[in-house]
Simulated scan of single mutants.
Amino acid sequence: MLLPIIDVGLMNEHLSTHEGLLGKLDLYQTESSATYLKKIVTIQQTLLKTHIRVMLELLNPSNENWIELPNINLEEELAFSWPIHSDFNTLTKRITLELQSTAKSMAHTNFNSALMMKNENVKHVHYNMAVQQATYMNYISNFIKEKDWAPSAKATQATQRKIIEHFNSLV
């Protein structure tokens, strides 16, 4: 089946991005000695390679079948224990923070692309890719929060009440 040019263009851009990300992840595998970090990098590599395979299937002009993104149970894949006592060095911290940022960016890009895409199958697949990346990102974010590697300030009760009072008339 022939796809709308916007779908083809967006997937071409995604494939180039995936190629670069896979190269970066290969470097992380080489540079890291932390077992848990290698595990989360491997999971992201698996996701990216799966996304590449599916996009190539979608781009195949001979294909007339509905293509599904394989269901990868990320909760199960990511259900391993982080080491409680470990020497989390600066490189490990930075790689973990970067993995979170990349997953967030990919989820955002896939979701926005799905909104712009015209072919229903291509839209569906990219929406599911966004969900997978967001799930992966949330897991990494929880670990980062646990380690207090990216602290965030909390609003005051007074600030929250002020906003409620301001917008309460809308309901």
Rank of each mutant, 00 (worst) to 15 (best):
L2P: 05
L2G: 05
L2T: 14
L3N: 00
L3A: 01
L3E: 00
P4M: 08
P4T: 06
I6M: 01
V8I: 04
G9H: 05
L10Q: 09
M11V: 03
M11R: 02
M11N: 04
M11D: 03
N12L: 08
E13P: 00
H14L: 05
H14D: 10
S16C: 02
H18T: 01
E19R: 12
G23A: 05
G23P: 01
K24Q: 11
K24N: 04
L25A: 06
L25H: 06
Y28L: 04
Q29C: 11
T30P: 03
S33W: 07
A34Y: 07
Y36F: 09
L37M: 08
K38R: 11
K39I: 12
I40P: 02
V41F: 03
Q44L: 13
Q45P: 06
L48M: 07
L48D: 05
K49Y: 06
K49H: 08
T50S: 12
I52Y: 00
V54M: 00
L56A: 02
L58R: 01
L59Q: 07
S62I: 07
N63L: 06
N65C: 03
I67C: 02
E68R: 12
L69C: 04
L69P: 03
P70D: 05
P70T: 08
P70Y: 07
N71H: 15
I72M: 13
E75V: 14
E75W: 14
E77W: 10
L78R: 03
L78C: 03
S81K: 10
P83T: 07
H85A: 11
K93A: 11
K93R: 15
I95E: 06
T96E: 03
T96K: 02
L97F: 00
E98Q: 09
E98I: 00
E98V: 00
L99W: 00
S101T: 13
S101E: 15
T102P: 03
T102N: 12
M106H: 04
M106I: 06
H108A: 14
T109L: 12
F111P: 00
F111H: 11
L115V: 09
L115Q: 11
N119Y: 05
N119F: 04
E120P: 15
N121Q: 13
N121H: 07
N121E: 12
K123A: 10
H124I: 03
H124K: 12
H124M: 13
M129G: 01
Q132T: 04
Q133D: 07
A134D: 09
T135G: 00
Y136A: 01
Y136K: 02
Y136W: 01
N138C: 07
N138A: 12
Y139H: 14
Y139F: 10
I140A: 01
S141R: 13
S141L: 12
N142K: 10
F143Y: 09
F143S: 02
E146L: 10
K147V: 02
K147T: 02
D148C: 06
W149K: 00
A150G: 02
P151K: 10
P151H: 07
S152W: 07
S152A: 10
S152L: 11
K154Y: 07
A155C: 09
A155H: 11
A158L: 14
T159Q: 15
Q160T: 12
R161L: 15
R161A: 13
R161T: 14
K162C: 10
K162G: 09
I163S: 13
I163C: 09
I164P: 09
E165T: 15
H166F: 13
F167P: 02
F167W: 13
N168G: 06
S169K: 15
S169T: 09
L170M: 10
L170H: 08
L170G: 00
V171M: 11
